[in-house]
Design a protein around this nucleic acid. Structure first.
Lengths: 239, 239
DNA sequence: AGGTAGAGAGAGCGGTGCTCTCGTTTCAAC
DNA sequence: GTTGAAACGAGAGCACCGCTCTCTCTACCT
């Protein structure tokens, strides 16, 4: 826990300013988008001259990194909150909850979603050591569902081996890293579900369906979700 | 056909300059990305002063629109070329060809792909009247596959009705617009396949898997493709 | 109490999109 | 063939951007 007691006033002021920068940055991100995020504008809203914010943030890219981490954490929290009331053996329910929470958060925070999962910001590469941790929370939850479903025998799976060998080698490494026992084929299915889920969400958030094609895009998402649950071998109904 | 004969020299020079602008714009897009696309830099490469290019292109956004249309057309051509040698009744083959051609083009032109299917460029909205036409070529091809497979009875489909009613109403309108006879449920499945396909491609192009997780991401894509074919009810194998 | 490090202000550099004005060239109507 | 309009390119200029440097002031630690 970041405790601000027994800190010098200057240090507390610094923490406050840091929080303000992230807050104002997120506001600008929401209103103008990632590429239009301007350190000078943040400084103006902060009541500072532009050069002063460089005392806190080394560069525009570093501000972006702060917002990326902040966004991943918020999405992770939203997913965790949606998962909280569910039984551990309600595998379909957990998958559906993850998907719905992701979509809801993405629609509520489209700019941050775009920053995390959209086109990379040109010239900016998120530093892996800061972003992979929070960035893998959602897929981590997905993996947990897979693993539990596998352990409970609640997932249907033909035993065709995965090909080619280099893919099964890669998948084995992934399995080892995250510590799961489910077979390669299941991990690959999980990755497919992950990518497909974000494809559905991105299409909606990024407006690929067109503006007025669907009166409530949520209906279509629910259908996609049902298809996804089925495709993945968790053969119960979504609702 | 845009014929440049019996045109005044000035008009032909204008056409050439237009082509040059798009060409140089695409180069910059590929090397620096969409948000870093600078009209001034294009002007420099063109040997013109920045204000002069405003004789040809009204704004940076209009240049983006030109590149969007150009990109959609190139992707559409790539997909058409991949489809050309295939039999009309090879439904799985056509779906797989569309998917592979899309992925290949996206990996070859990541910046243009990002411009078309990634986060929207802030402050820029693609004018629908110019972009929806070329922008729907790929999904149009997908729909053709669906329709043919349906007509040939080569697609498995349970007859659960689509819910809720407003979704089936929307889908009916879409069906009417594109003139297909396949049932709602199939159209929805097609949209799911579309979104899931682009989710898989985007994850790879945008680097969501991490840099060194897979020795050849193409292996994983092929697996995803097999899952997609299965999920969609075209129950043959992909290879 | 004094030295140091942090904080903010301001000027400045080179870049951006875009506008305006100014000569020059081209084209087409007469 | 002349002439007037339209197209064209150049240049200056505006407001903005990221970022650096220097300056002053003040809070903090020893």
């Amino acid at each position: 826990m970041a405790d601000s007691s027994n800190l010098t006033p200057r240090a507390r002021a610094r923490e406050q300013t840091m929080r303000d920068i992230v807050r104002i940055g997120r506001e600008h991100l929401a209103t103008e988008g990632a590429a239009a995020l301007s350190l000078r504008a943040v400084a103006r809203d902060l009541g500072l001259v532009s050069s002063a914010v460089y005392r806190y943030v080394a560069s525009r890219d570093e501000l972006l990194t702060l917002l990326v981490v902040n966004g991943y954490d918020e999405l992770g929290d939203a997913v965790d909150a949606a998962l909280e009331p569910l039984d551990r053996d309600d595998h379909v329910g957990r998958l559906v909850a993850i998907a719905r929470a992701t979509r809801a958060w993405a629609l509520a925070e489209p700019a941050t979603y775009a920053l995390l999962f959209g086109s990379p910001v040109p010239g900016y590469e998120a530093p892996a050591e800061q972003t992979t941790g929070p960035g893998t929370r959602v897929v981590g939850r997905l993996v947990e569902v897979w693993e539990d479903a596998w352990q409970a025998g609640a997932i249907s799976l033909d035993d065709a081996p995965i090909t080619p060998r280099r893919l099964s080698r890669d998948l084995a490494r992934v399995r080892k890293q995250v510590g799961i026992t489910a077979p390669d084929r299941l991990v690959a299915r999980g990755l497919f579900a992950w990518a497909a889920l974000f494809g559905c969400v991105s299409f909606e958030v990024f407006g690929q369906y067109g503006a007025d094609t669907f009166t409530d895009p949520g209906d279509l998402f629910e259908h996609h979700l049902a298809a996804l649950v089925e495709a993945v071998g968790l053969a119960q109904q979504a609702r």
